[in-house]
Design a protein around this nucleic acid. Structure first.
Lengths: 109, 109
DNA sequence: CCCGAAGTTCGATGATCGTCGAAGTGTTTG
DNA sequence: CAAACACTTCGACGATCATCGAACTTCGGG
């Protein structure tokens, strides 16, 4: 098995870490965008979420989300394709993700 | 109408602020304790939640929770009696509170 | 083969945070 | 009335955070 990026195992997700990751407006927008559009690249997310930050800042936010266990990152060529770790989050913290992505769009699972 | 303590109106609750308030372990424990035991005083909460912090730190945490709109504080003599603002939180962010107080105890509403 | 695109990593900087003790305010109790 | 109680407020402290630009790596296309 060859993973390209490190992700915390599902059992290690901690509520405070997850909440802290979601507490930043840019990261919350990122998660909501990801819930809406599905798997996409860093640049695409930044565009779709309408975030006006530098690349390094965006990279930083995505790292926080990944290390909190909220997103999964797989490498495809020059790109990183990100997805929400819905199943792990729902298993560990039922209802939380749906509650933070708010609108009826939560049904887009 | 004479309020003794300032609380943000229900419409002004912001998701990032609420999440940031809940992201600290001491404050999360406070909220869960409050959900379990109902209205109680600062000192009682601190005891029930098993928090070993100074009084000033406790006061600080309780202020964050109050200003985020998560708790309501009413003055009774020398004490402050705190409650969760369940209705406001459920109206504004359905499912969020139940998701963070986690266990089946969530039904203790 | 080289250049642009996509991200990451590395300081650095200013802001915010959690924590404390000391001092203050108001309340109950002996 | 004085002392104990229940909190809050006020600096102060070290730690963490969000942000940036610059430099670096890796991949894709002419």
């Amino acid at each position: 098995m060859s993973e390209e990026v490190i992700h915390p195992p599902a059992e290690e997700l901690s509520m405070p870490k997850v909440l802290a990751a979601l507490a930043d407006p840019a990261r919350l927008a990122t998660v909501r965008t990801l819930a809406r559009v599905g798997e996409s690249s860093c640049g695409q997310i930044q565009h779709d979420a309408g975030l006006e930050v530098s690349k390094s800042t965006m990279s930083h936010h995505l790292r926080i989300l990944r290390e909190a266990g909220i997103t999964h990152s797989r490498v495809q060529g020059a790109r990183r394709l990100l997805t929400l770790r819905r199943d792990d989050l729902d298993a560990r913290f039922p209802g939380l993700l749906d509650a933070v992505i708010q609108p009826e769009l939560a049904a887009s699972r």
